[in-house]
């Protein structure tokens, strides 16, 4: 069973990189377009390594996000866990989708994620209007295929090493 475990470090490293990209300062012009990196990574790992990365992993990433971004503790955790759940239910189907259709499925899942964040913000009484909140959905879906290819390439390298 050894090969199953060797990706744990890799998954962990990719999630840390995602969190760093999330809080890295960006120029105002592209800041609103910053993709939802943790959501993409959670989706990628629940899609391709569901036996190693599941709901609890997604939830912990969410707690880290909440702490880093100063949102209510549990807000990102809830959103990430729910999309991980949907993805785990559908991963056998989404995995064999044609590439474009897969990016579309990811767009829907990130939309669910942003909607849950939006919804919790609304219930908690924070300001919620405006278009900027929904831009990451588009940029995440647009970057899904390159990111997936990158992670796959890195995994192949890790397997050879």
């Amino acid at each position: 069973m050894k090969p199953v475990y060797r990706f744990d470090g890799f998954i962990f490293a990719s999630l840390i990189a995602g969190l760093i990209l999330t809080i890295m300062p960006l120029p105002d012009a592209i800041n609103a377009w910053r993709p939802a990196w943790p959501a993409m990574l959670v989706l990628y790992w629940t899609l391709h390594k569901p036996e190693r990365f599941g709901l609890l992993g997604a939830w912990l990433v969410g707690i880290a996000m909440d702490t880093l971004t100063g949102t209510l503790l549990g807000q990102h955790a809830l959103a990430l866990m729910v999309i991980a759940f949907i993805n785990l239910k559908l991963h056998l189907r989404i995995r064999v989708f044609p590439k474009g259709q897969q990016a579309l499925a990811i767009l829907m899942l990130v939309l669910v994620y942003e909607f849950l964040l939006f919804w919790v913000d609304g219930v908690a009484g924070f300001a919620t209007s405006g278009i900027a909140r929904w831009l990451p959905v588009l940029s995440s879906a647009a970057l899904w295929l390159p990111v997936a290819a990158l992670l796959k390439g890195a995994m192949v390298l890790a397997r050879r090493a």
Binding site: L55, G62, L73, G74, L78, M81, V120
Partner: peptide, 21 residues
């Protein structure tokens, strides 16, 4: 089961958010 875990973590998140607010 997956559903049970979802339920438990959902309850945790909501409890945390309510306490945190």
């Amino acid at each position: 089961a997956l559903g049970t875990r979802l339920f438990l973590l959902l309850a945790c998140s909501i409890l945390l958010m309510v306490l945190d607010s």
